[in-house]
Amino acid sequence: MDSIIFDLDGTIWDPIDTVLGAWNSVIRKNSQIKSELTRKDFEGTMGLQMEEIGRKLFPSLSYEERQQIVNDCGEVEHSFIEKQGGMLYPNVENVLRELSQKYKLYIVSNCQAGYIESFYKYHKLEQYFLDFENPGRTCLSKGENIKLVIDRNNLSDPVYVGDTKGDLEAARFAGIPFIYATYGFGQVNQYDKAIGSFEELLNVF
């Protein structure tokens, strides 16, 4: 194994409280949406692309209305994350520091453009990662983005670490092993290895 590609939400951190504050600040100004979102609402969207999230959270709106509200929420979300960050899982930086001495590290997330950069800006973890990708930049699926990172960086033996069924499917699409973060947001029945905390990666590798 020469490299580790990480999912972000539910794997490295839990950003929901910050994201919830950002989205509800936009929703309060929209007369078409009658109630604010809850943490449970967001937990059910983890791992989905932005268009899917809009369809799930705002089913009564038209496609154009959903796109507009999701875009507006995404823009505000960046500023909230840059100022407040999210909840890193225990000892994330120590684990990344140790892993980066042996392996090349990357992030592939189903987020909008600018989200990973905002994560980096607050938590100062970009020094441990050599590259990242998301559908906000490429309009590709997670599996395609994983393959893109593999090809772009000439990786020969990577693994993917994530917490949802979508992460499993993306890893399988890319033809690489999947490590299931059981502490995250999803329920996955198939995996190559499982970890109960981010720190357990040190035992796996």
Results as ranks from 00 to 15, higher is better:
Gly186Ile: 03
Lys29Ile: 03
Gly74Thr: 09
Val19Arg: 09
Val95Pro: 00
Gly162Ala: 03
Ile179Ser: 06
Phe178Gln: 06
Arg172Ser: 12
Phe185Ile: 13
Asn203Gln: 14
Ser118Gly: 02
Asp192Cys: 07
Pro90Met: 01
Met87Ala: 10
Ser141Cys: 03
Gln190His: 11
Asn94Gly: 11
Asp9Arg: 02
Tyr115Glu: 00
Ala181Gly: 13
His78Tyr: 13
Cys139Thr: 15
Arg172Cys: 08
Lys142Arg: 01
Pro90Phe: 08
Phe129Asp: 08
Val108Arg: 06
Ile33Arg: 09
Ile176Val: 11
Leu96Ile: 08
Met46Cys: 13
Asp167His: 04
Asn203Ser: 13
Pro177Lys: 04
Thr18Gln: 02
Gly85Met: 14
Phe173Asp: 09
Pro15Glu: 11
Glu200Cys: 01
Asn134Pro: 07
Phe198Asp: 01
Asp2Trp: 11
Asp17Phe: 08
Gln32Phe: 14
Gly136Ile: 07
Ala22Asp: 00
Phe132Ser: 09
Trp13Glu: 03
Ile33Leu: 09
Lys104Trp: 03
Glu51Ala: 09
Lys83Tyr: 14
Gly196Leu: 15
Asp192Lys: 00
Asp131Ser: 08
Ile33Asp: 09
Asp14Ser: 06
Arg97Met: 14
Lys104Gly: 13
Val95Thr: 10
Thr38His: 06
Val95Asp: 06
Leu96Arg: 07
Thr11Ala: 03
Gln68Asp: 12
Asp7Lys: 00
Ile69Val: 12
Ile176Gly: 01
Ser60Trp: 08
Val76Trp: 00
Val149Gly: 01
Gln187Tyr: 14
Ser79Gln: 15
Ser25Glu: 11
Glu169Phe: 12
Gln101Gly: 14
